[in-house]
Simulated assay, not measured.
Amino acid sequence: MTALPDLDRRPSLARLALHRAAIELTGFLRERDAVVFTLALPVVILTLLGSIVDGVYPGSEVTSAQYLAPSMIAAGIASTTFINLGTGIAADRDDGTLRRLRGVPMPPAAYLLGKVLMALVLTIGETVLLLGVAVAAFDLRLPTEPARWLTFGWVFLLGTTACALLGIAASSLARSARSAAAVMNLPYLVLAFISGIFYTPIRALPEPLITVGSLFPLKWMAQGFRSVFLPDTILSQEVVPSWEHGRVALVLAAWCIGGMVLCLTTFRWQGRRGR
């Protein structure tokens, strides 16, 4: 007697998420203009600002361009995750993709994890590209100590996760796909400035702006990456003469938890105009 197939056996959440990530990544890569502009934006900003700013910081051999490079890695991660996920999910909601996906036997978490995994792949490629430009054009020295690369790893994972979750949550603020870019870009640009990304060194910012910027993950991501690629002699240009790795980890982990809570409480599968 032939055994009947197990109809209740379903793919795991991890397998569904990987499958959805492959679909998302394939669809994104087909949009060549989106790929080029997404990966090129932080590289172009680094090249332009790095060519404009000049000088060596007192007491250190670090140039202004080298100080800027690690901060631009943080900005690139935030752009690829927060902005791209926010606008992409808003577009899926606006054109009915989310509504159709809810009708298939796939858990909602698989869709969201697929989006996050796609963003993670893009941020890895973007980071490699940024480091290549920084090394070739501005003589940024890559660390040789394993401990520094370990720091890079946890800052990268925590920062990417936090920004991705915040992008998913913020996607609900846009009333349509057309308005999503403006809604996502405004907070990103404001935080980039008050987090010391485009204004170096960070200790030159007004104290109230430093205080506000310290409440958000971008400032701590940039500080964590600077601790990886820059020597300790540059600490005189930081807000405090320490890399504060414990506080960096605490703030980024807190935003990961907060971002998850925001996703669970604010995420909508249907647009406001569809109610």
Rank of each mutant, 00 (worst) to 15 (best):
G59W: 05
T233L: 08
L230E: 04
L68I: 04
L4A: 15
T123E: 08
A192T: 07
S12H: 03
T81Q: 03
M260R: 13
M118T: 08
T38C: 08
P201I: 09
I83F: 10
C256W: 07
G59I: 03
F28L: 05
I77R: 00
L173P: 03
R175Q: 06
S60E: 11
D94M: 04
L150P: 07
G259K: 00
I89D: 01
R203I: 14
T80L: 12
R99M: 06
A74T: 07
T233K: 08
E31F: 14
L130N: 03
L205H: 13
V212P: 07
P143W: 02
H245V: 11
T2R: 15
L166P: 02
P107M: 02
L235M: 15
I257L: 15
E145W: 14
F156Y: 12
M1H: 13
G59P: 04
S171F: 00
S12R: 05
P206K: 11
G86R: 09
P11C: 10
T80P: 02
L215I: 13
A249H: 07
M1A: 15
V239L: 08
L13S: 06
N84M: 14
V212W: 08
T127F: 02
W154Y: 01
W269L: 07
R141A: 15
Y67L: 12
A119S: 13
L215C: 13
R272H: 08
V53G: 13
L41P: 12
A110D: 07
S171D: 03
T80D: 04
N84R: 15
Q237N: 09
M118D: 11
G88M: 09
C256I: 06
S60K: 10
A69L: 05
S227T: 03
A174E: 02
T81L: 04
F216L: 10
L150K: 01
L120F: 11
V155M: 09
T80K: 09
L46Y: 09
G159H: 12
V183L: 00
Q223P: 10
F37N: 14
C263L: 12
R10K: 14
P241L: 05
A110Y: 11
E24I: 01
L150Y: 05
G50R: 07
R20V: 15
A254I: 01
L18I: 10
A137N: 02
G159F: 15
P206C: 12
A162D: 01
A90R: 04
G246V: 04
W243Q: 05
L150C: 00
L218V: 01
S51K: 03
L18R: 07
L218F: 09
S171P: 04
I194A: 11
S195F: 05
T266N: 02
W255N: 06
V183C: 01
E145S: 15
R32N: 06
R30W: 14
T63S: 14
S179A: 12
R100S: 02
L117D: 01
V121M: 12
S12V: 01
N84P: 10
D92I: 03
R9F: 08
A14Y: 05
T200Q: 13
F225G: 04
T200N: 11
L117I: 11
R100A: 04
T2H: 15
G159V: 08
G86V: 07
I124C: 03
R175F: 00
G224P: 06
A147F: 11
P201T: 10
R178M: 13
R268N: 04
S171C: 02
G55S: 10
I234D: 07
G159L: 09
I45D: 04
E126L: 14
